[in-house]
Amino acid sequence: MMALFQISDEIRVQGTTKNGSDTIRYMMDHAAETDVLILDIGLPDLSGVDVARVLRDASIDTPILIVSNDDSSDTVLRAIRAGICGYLLKDCDGEELKHAVREVSFGRRYIDQRLLPYLMDRVRGEEQQNSPSYPVRPPHPSAAMSAVTRFMPGLEELTPRERDVLRLMAEGHTNDEIATRLFITPKTARNHTTSILQKLGVKTRTQAVVLALSQDISISAGTLGLFS
């Protein structure tokens, strides 16, 4: 994997670790000077998702980018719920990796475009019965484009304030925290959340957040360090 990271003078490898436990210990000491933490899923002891969850529980908010060969919908969703900021497949090229690192370092979200169509179907409950985990790479690039276009209308219907709320939801904030950040009442925040779910045609906050991540709502709402 290290060969992928020798791509630009913009990215400096600050340190490497051998497993999840070492990564956690390293970040406990070096989080302040680490701009982006890049993890694989298949670490020797803990999974990258487990590492992300431990770091978030420890209030370490360094942006985490997963770079992995694992393209199952289960894994991607677990990683998102654990608080990662980006998920990229290992067969990406150097330019896309550089772009993904830049995006998450700026506080934005990045999901490999090839993961989006079937990931969205999974979140919407449209996956096939008896297939709890299946590849999410679309068979043809056109499939990805048509799927993304299919979900755009709901996002376009959101008001600027609803986009602000959705962006904060994607960052993991509760309605009360959103209310505080936007200087609105908790009731207003809940009303915005309800309206967002209705406009996007989803039933849960998680579904709305994945949709937001797929369209990088943080950019339109206008929102290195260790490699393992």
Rank of each mutant, 00 (worst) to 15 (best):
F5Q: 01
Q6C: 12
I7E: 11
S8P: 09
S8H: 10
E10G: 07
I11G: 06
R12M: 05
R12V: 13
G15Q: 07
G15D: 06
G15K: 08
G15T: 04
N19R: 03
N19D: 14
G20Y: 02
G20W: 02
D22H: 13
R25D: 15
R25F: 10
M27I: 13
M28K: 14
H30D: 02
V36I: 14
L39F: 00
I41F: 09
G48K: 01
D50P: 11
D50N: 08
V51D: 01
A52W: 03
R53S: 08
L55R: 02
A58Y: 11
I60A: 03
V67N: 04
S68P: 15
D74I: 03
L77T: 15
R78F: 12
R78L: 13
R78G: 13
I80E: 05
A82D: 03
A82E: 04
A82L: 02
I84R: 00
C85T: 15
Y87S: 06
Y87R: 09
L89V: 15
D91E: 09
D91Y: 07
C92A: 14
D93G: 05
E95N: 10
E95S: 12
E95C: 06
K98V: 15
H99C: 10
A100Y: 14
V101G: 06
R102L: 14
R102T: 15
V104N: 00
S105F: 07
F106L: 08
R109P: 07
I111Q: 08
Q113F: 07
R114V: 10
L115N: 01
L115M: 01
L116E: 05
L116A: 13
P117D: 04
Y118N: 06
D121V: 15
G125C: 08
E127F: 14
N130A: 12
S131Y: 07
Y134D: 13
V136D: 01
P139V: 04
A144W: 04
V148S: 05
T149M: 11
T149C: 11
R150C: 09
F151M: 15
M152C: 12
M152P: 05
G154M: 00
E156V: 14
E157C: 09
T159R: 05
R161E: 13
R163N: 07
L168H: 00
T174S: 13
T174G: 06
T174W: 03
D176S: 12
T180S: 07
T180E: 09
T185M: 00
P186H: 06
P186M: 05
K187T: 10
T193R: 11
T193D: 08
T193L: 06
S195I: 08
I196L: 06
I196W: 06
L197F: 01
Q198C: 03
K199M: 00
L200Q: 00
K203D: 08
T204N: 08
R205Q: 10
R205Y: 08
V209W: 04
L211F: 05
L213F: 12
I217T: 14
S218I: 12
I219M: 09
I219S: 07
S220F: 15
A221C: 09
G222S: 10
L224Y: 13
S228V: 15
